[in-house]
Design a protein around this nucleic acid. Structure first.
Lengths: 189, 189
DNA sequence: CGAGGCAGAGAACGAGCGTTCTCCACCTGT
DNA sequence: ACAGGTGGAGAACGCTCGTTCTCTGCCTCG
């Protein structure tokens, strides 16, 4: 049936909008029912427990988040420019009106200590993002240590943009990355 | 009365231990009562609502966290060494057995969107830490932009150490800071 | 000594929430 | 047309939790 897919997507759309904006624990299943237009019965057929819905939310968002990042990065040709494009993309994201921080950092703060499935999703997402940055750095012929440093700058920018509600951290982190790239190039030359 | 102070401290000790390890929403007042040995009545006399106790927890932890950081940093003489000492201290903190990430990043992820008092405490703490780093950088005669970059590295290290449960982010961020200091020095020379 | 108030222990209350159940309208196949 | 099943709407259940109340003993002060 095609309607099954559509119903699951409607559920995930509603869940994502609410969870991302307000946090997971402060959103009840009733609210997701109302926002999705699905019945509770259908909701529980698709996701037998709230925790499963949360997992699916994080998983689907992870795929989209990394795909959109990669699409933005791939518009640039130069390997070094691609590294910096990560921060351009972060800056655009921070400027979105409904930006509310990194969904995974937030979820980890909220449920990382209580829910192993949530902690697992967060670790998977961050490991994938870190691997992606490491790959960009490796393709630029730069040392792996730079990959870790760029990753930390991105994480710091996300955490700080959320708390201060500013976009400046993206540019500040980009500037730091630029300097670190230069320093790495000189060290390896 | 002296017992008032002691009772409030016992409440805060219990609250901090539980909130920091498990998050705020998953710890009930009953558990804090048991852990503190205080009665619910006394607890509510001292903190008329859970939210007040949470505020006081964040506030007292902020004071202690920044004092301990400053004490560690001040053991070093050289202004540049002091900047790097921030990351030494972070590394020691990450290695503590009950390290569970940055209490403010966690609290913001959990309640930043729901509780204005909590969001306010987090912003105050992060602003104070950023100002502290900025001051260390200024005293080393280095540009303000470096202060922001070092701050972002520290935030990224805290977020990452929490999620990955490793201490390496402290050393990686320190190495990045070292390179950025060198780059800044050369740029201003 | 006696009365009044304070503190402790925990029961009780009320709201919220995850999950399940009930009831009913509708659809389908013969 | 009708029996059986499917899905919608939301009531109901059971539990948790923040907060308040009750009861009881004790300490204090006149």
């Amino acid at each position: 049936m095609d309607t099954t897919v559509t119903a699951a997507e409607r559920a995930l759309d509603a869940a994502e909008r609410l969870f991302y904006r307000r946090g997971i624990q402060s959103v009840g299943m009733d609210e997701i029912r109302t926002a999705s237009g699905l019945s509770l019965k259908r909701l529980y057929q698709l996701f037998p427990a709230k925790e499963r819905l949360v997992e699916a939310y994080l998983e689907r968002r992870d795929e989209r988040w990394r795909r959109e990042l990669a699409e933005h990065v791939e518009r640039h040709e130069s390997p070094e420019r691609r590294i910096l494009a990560v921060f351009d993309w972060l800056g655009e994201w921070f400027a979105e009106p409904d930006f509310n921080g990194c969904a995974w950092i937030n979820s980890y703060g909220e449920l990382g200590a209580t829910s192993e499935p949530v902690a697992r999703q967060v670790r998977l997402h961050k490991a994938a993002f870190r691997d992606y940055v490491a790959d960009l750095v490796a393709r630029a012929g730069l040392p792996a240590s730079l990959g870790e440093q760029v990753f930390l700058l991105a994480e710091g920018a996300m955490a700080t943009a959320a708390i201060t509600r500013t976009t400046a951290p993206a540019q500040q982190a980009a500037q730091a990355a630029r300097l670190l790239i230069t320093a790495s190039r000189q060290a390896s030359a």
